[in-house]
């Protein structure tokens, strides 16, 4: 029988599913607004604005919930880079994904009681959750309360720059979602990581 470890308690699974759904809604409405045309829009503009704003507020609440519970539960340790030679570890993991996986090699950093994420996975989560999420939230709040934005920054419209960073970070998060879903097919079996996000148990490699 395959050994399993309970890495995803209910609180994190709930956060994850809401986060995923809200991100999807935000991506669809965001694209709809950005490429709106009188005769072809994914979602009518005014509706897209309302949905985008509401989903954004829920996403912020969900993110704050993640930050707080993540810290209180001790799960935060999985998002901290503590090991030495981290860059080398990243390269090793990258080499595994680009070569080793095809050769049938064992994953260099298998999931265990203490290791939840491999280094590349951990780095991606840190970048998205601790760099791009704050950026997208701050710029989004700026667009929500545009009177707060500095009118001009180095001669460029502050509103424009805020929107540019919002859209760029939105694109990065969107791309992350796609890559994230694909990488989830690389568990012990094709569907094992998806199952893990439903029942909380992850199979150890």
């Amino acid at each position: 029988m395959t050994e399993k470890v309970y890495h995803y308690p209910l609180w994190i699974r709930l956060w994850h599913v809401f986060n995923a759904l809200l991100c999807l809604v935000l991506i669809v409405t965001g694209i709809s607004m950005q490429f709106s045309e009188p005769n072809r829009s994914l979602v009518p503009f005014d509706l897209a604005v309302s949905i985008h704003n509401s989903a954004a507020i829920l996403l912020i609440i969900n993110y704050l919930y993640f930050l707080i519970v993540n810290r209180l539960s001790g799960n935060r340790m999985h998002y901290k880079i503590t090991e030495k030679g981290y860059v080398k570890m990243l390269i090793t993991q990258f080499r595994y994904y680009t070569l080793g996986i095809f050769r049938g090699e064992k994953t260099p950093f298998p999931v265990s009681e203490v290791r939840k994420f491999n280094p590349l996975q951990q780095f991606a989560y840190i970048v998205i959750l601790y760099w791009f999420f704050p950026l997208i939230i701050i710029t989004g709040l700026g667009l929500f309360f545009p009177e707060m934005i500095i009118t001009r920054i180095f001669g460029i419209s502050g509103l424009f720059l805020t929107d540019l960073f919002h859209i760029l970070s939105g694109f990065v998060v969107s791309m992350f979602m796609i890559v994230h879903i694909y990488f989830c097919t690389m568990g012990t079996r094709l569907t094992s990581l998806f199952k893990g996000m439903i029942n909380g148990w992850v199979e150890i490699h």
């Binding site: 607004m33 950005q34 490429f35 709106s36 503009f45 419209s157 509103l159 424009f160 805020t162 929107d163």
Partner: peptide
Amino acid sequence: ILNDAFVIGANR
């Protein structure tokens, strides 16, 4: 439009 403001959907 970009010179003075930013209009979502208009500036691409």
